[in-house]
Design a protein around this nucleic acid. Structure first.
Length: 511
RNA sequence: GGCGGUGUAGCUCAGUCGGUCAGAGCAUACGGCUCAUAUCCGUAGAGUCGGUGGUUCGAGUCCACCCACCGCCA
């Protein structure tokens, strides 16, 4: 008997020193939507996020604050944890690279690879800027001076540990070639294949402690700490239990999907696969690199002062509106622009006029003509059922493809159908004729049922909105399927609906 | 410089194997409805599908070159 595999999705571990911004929130929100969708379908899900806490910047920031690096991390990590709490993301685990559970496994991995000759020590020469405590290669230095501060550098010879990455180049080229969905989107896959056309060197994976002490100690040489790669990337396997809970690990790892920003493509699509291969582990299903958000057409940067705080956005516009915008506005994988105008456009057109209004008009008529009670279904066709089922199928396909924009497009097409249905049936006309009472009942019943179905469709993407709709429709609990596919007639007859006000009030643009 | 990509209606973009592919949404205009958050439904626009030259019975859709952007690497 085989265990059912888990849908496993990761975000990068964010550098604990960074100020959380829209880019962080974007990746995490998409991972959250995928997770919620797979859970809704009854699948086992493991959604992982976390923080990368080692390195020089942390060490320096801690020193400047006069506290230990660990204390510094413990303070800083809350900014991410608080943001995810505020955005209500549904991650199952939050890994910190300074956690004992992680360090232990990192060291075991290093020992394993070292024992098998995959890691070796070598010396190399380069130039060192003493005041900056930075190492530069031949290419970096400018006329014998540090490219950073302009002061003279000194030639030194340094020893470090290296991972035999280069010899796996052809293996990786073949793997990527044979697995078209491994690196996505297509354009990023091309980039990696282009990158791999050239020689691939071995990877320096350590730093002498004199230069960097805040890191995971190399278990077989305590004068060194491991540098970035084997510390950070390995979080994806340490969290699901590699070397600790093999059964759980295997089941989880089989369904692994890494969501990353395009800035860390090489580390994830070259270093990481080779590290896994050297460890004898299978590859994740997909490494999906998404694009960047510009802000009002300009790159987000501290110097421009336009770094968007997702928490403030959520406070101002609501979590679900932000989620909707991020996922609908741009096909996942491409760059996009975050502008107030576009955001308000989406909120007013899609959320207020389409979704909010159709919800409002059906509930208002239910209240007006049936005193808020769900009318009996009677007999006859359910003209919207097939459309709903089609939308559900589209959403599923989009989720498989990691294309949330297509999922939302399909849901909005369904919402359009509901509006059209109402305009065709004209329940407000039927209501004037007592003879048409049954037909009116069926019409509104169908509309209400469509709203219930819409709540299910939306549950993964806009969980708060879906829950609110569910409650207003007089249903208990939250949007759920009771099966692998949402059924149609799910509204209990005689249920009491409530008209609790607009789902999304229109935002009046003021100049 | 090498590799890859993009250039389609005012705006943002779809367009798989070459032949109803010249499309969608937004914006705009007009019409309809009034249950609804001045919301909803319908209709309309003609954009030389970056340029030039090819292949073909037929090309946004393939090829060559050119122009303009962008990404990766160096």
């Amino acid at each position: 008997m085989t265990d059912k595999k888990t849908f496993y999705v990761t975000t990068p571990i964010y550098y604990v020193n960074d100020v959380p911004h829209l880019g962080h929130a974007y990746t995490t929100v998409v991972a959250d939507c995928l997770s919620r969708f797979h859970r809704l379908r009854g699948e086992e899900v493991f959604f992982l996020t976390g923080t990368d806490e080692h390195g020089q910047k942390v060490e320096q920031a801690a020193a400047a604050a006069g506290i230990s690096p660990q204390d510094h991390c413990d303070r800083m990590v809350h900014r991410f944890q608080d943001l995810w709490r505020q955005l209500d993301t549904s991650h199952d685990d939050f890994i910190r690279t300074t956690q004992e559970r992680h360090i232990r496994v990192v060291q075991a991995i290093l020992t394993d690879l070292h024992d098998r000759g995959e890691i070796y020590k070598d010396s190399y020469q380069g130039w060192y800027c003493v005041p900056d405590e930075r190492f530069w290669t031949e290419k970096d230095i400018e006329g014998g001076n540090c490219p950073d501060c302009g002061r003279p550098v000194v030639e030194i010879t340094e020893e470090n540990y290296f991972f035999r990455m280069g010899k796996y180049r052809q293996w990786l080229v073949d793997y990527i070639t044979e697995n078209p969905d491994f690196v996505r989107p297509q354009t990023r896959r091309n980039e990696i294949l282009g990158f791999l056309r050239k020689d691939l060197g071995d990877l320096c994976i350590s730093r002498p402690k004199e230069r960097l002490s805040w890191g995971v100690e190399i278990p077989f040489d305590t004068d060194f700490v491991t540098y970035v790669w084997f510390d950070a990337l390995t979080n994806y396997i340490t969290a699901p239990g590699y070397l600790v809970d093999e059964k759980r690990f295997t089941r989880t790892w089989e369904g692994a999907h890494h969501l990353i920003g395009k800035d860390i493509l090489t580390t994830h699509a070259v270093y990481w696969p080779i590290m896994l291969h050297a460890l004898g582990l299978p590859q994740p299903k997909t490494i999906f690199a998404h694009g960047w958000w510009t802000i009002e057409g300009r790159k987000m940067s501290k110097s421009l002062g336009n770094v968007v705080d997702p928490g403030r956005l959520a406070e101002e516009y609501g979590i679900d509106a932000i989620r909707y915008f991020l996922m609908r506005e741009v096909p996942f994988g491409l760059d996009g622009d975050f502008s107030k105008r576009a955001l308000i456009g989406r909120i007013n057109n899609d959320l207020a006029n389409d979704l909010g209004n159709v919800f409002s008009r059906i509930l208002a008529m239910t209240k007006k003509y049936f005193d808020g009670f769900v009318p009996p279904s009677g007999s006859g066709e359910s003209p919207l059922a097939a459309q709903g089922a089609a939308a559900w199928e589209e959403v599923g396909k989009a989720a498989e493809k990691i294309a949330p924009h297509l999922a939302l497009a399909a849901i909005w097409e369904f919402i359009g159908r509901i509006n059209k249905f109402l305009d065709d049936e004209k329940p407000w006309i039927l209501a004037r004729d007592p003879e048409q009472r049954d037909r009116l009942a069926r019409c509104l019943r169908e509309g209400l049922e469509a709203l219930r179905f819409t709540a299910i469709l939306l549950a993964a993407f806009m969980p708060h909105t879906a829950a609110r709709m569910w409650a207003d429709l007089g249903l208990d609990g939250g949007p759920s399927l009771r099966g692998t596919v949402p059924g149609w007639n799910g509204l209990p007859e005689g249920g009491r609906t409530t008209l609790s006000g607009p789902l999304f009030p229109r935002i009046e643009e003021k100049d």
